[in-house]
């Protein structure tokens, strides 16, 4: 059984009688352990698709089946529960809470779970360790570089041990070196068995994934495995 299965998925936004059709008749499956890049030009609907797959938004038609469950039947609280337990997000603009330490930022998703308070700090520290930030636990976001912020965001995305990690243009606000570090971490997480869905408009970044789904104007124009996969090895050594 596929982890994610999308059948005839449609999305349109309706704002005061103006209907914007964004996604048309999408069909694909993603299995556990995959590393998929969703690639396409600006405005093609990549983020919209990611929001639907990440339980943040609802499709207007078709089906999205996650782990055998039809997501369109879920209520708000159930969607929140799915976001809490099944997915982690990494955003282009980091979205760390200001004036809140690195450690507390990473603990945040655990606050909405039944994880006991003692365990939270331990899990967050482990997650920060795996992105090479164990020496920044008590820093505030405004004391971090862009690359460090994005690594905190990755730690926050994986602290719940989610089934899928979504990354929407995670390298978009970073210089190429920090971008490579982020890609290396994502590749390592994938090698450890995490399913990763990366949204990008850059071919080079997309080629770090194993498979690329190309979208244009809300339609899938190609879906193929990466022939010459890029490996961001060694970038992480620069961290230390």
């Amino acid at each position: 059984m596929a982890l994610i299965e999308v059948k005839n998925l449609e999305k349109e936004y309706v704002n005061e009688a103006i209907v914007t059709h964004v996604l048309y008749n999408l069909n694909f499956k993603i299995d556990k352990g995959e590393f998929v890049a969703i690639m396409g030009p600006s405005g093609s609907g990549k983020s919209t698709l990611m929001h639907i797959l990440g339980f943040l938004d609802k499709a207007s038609g078709g089906q999205f089946i996650f782990n055998g469950r039809d997501v369109s039947t879920l209520h708000d609280d159930e969607l929140a529960e799915m976001r809490s337990s099944q997915v982690g997000f990494v955003f282009q603009s980091f979205n760390l809470l200001p004036r809140t330490t690195v450690l507390e930022n990473v603990i945040l998703p655990l606050v909405y779970t039944s994880t006991p308070a003692r365990k939270r700090e331990e899990l967050a520290t482990t997650a920060l360790n795996s992105v090479g930030l164990s020496h920044r636990l008590n820093f505030l976001p405004n004391q971090l570089s862009g690359g460090e912020k994005q690594r905190v965001a990755i730690a926050r995305a994986l602290v719940n041990d989610p089934a899928v990690i979504f990354a929407d243009e995670p390298t978009g606000n970073l210089d190429s070196k920090s971008g490579l570090q982020v890609m290396q971490i994502l590749q390592e997480l994938n090698a450890d068995g995490h399913t990763i869905i990366l949204v990008t408009h850059e071919k080079y970044t997309a080629e770090h994934a194993k498979r690329i789904l190309r979208i244009k104007d809300g339609e899938i124009i190609s879906d193929e495995l990466v022939a010459n996969r890029q490996f961001a090895t060694g970038a992480k050594e620069l961290i230390k």
Partner: peptide, 12 residues
């Protein structure tokens, strides 16, 4: 928005 994305329910 962030808290909701990270799993906060309306009640939270």
């Amino acid at each position: 928005g962030l808290r909701k994305a990270l799993g906060a329910k309306n009640r939270d």
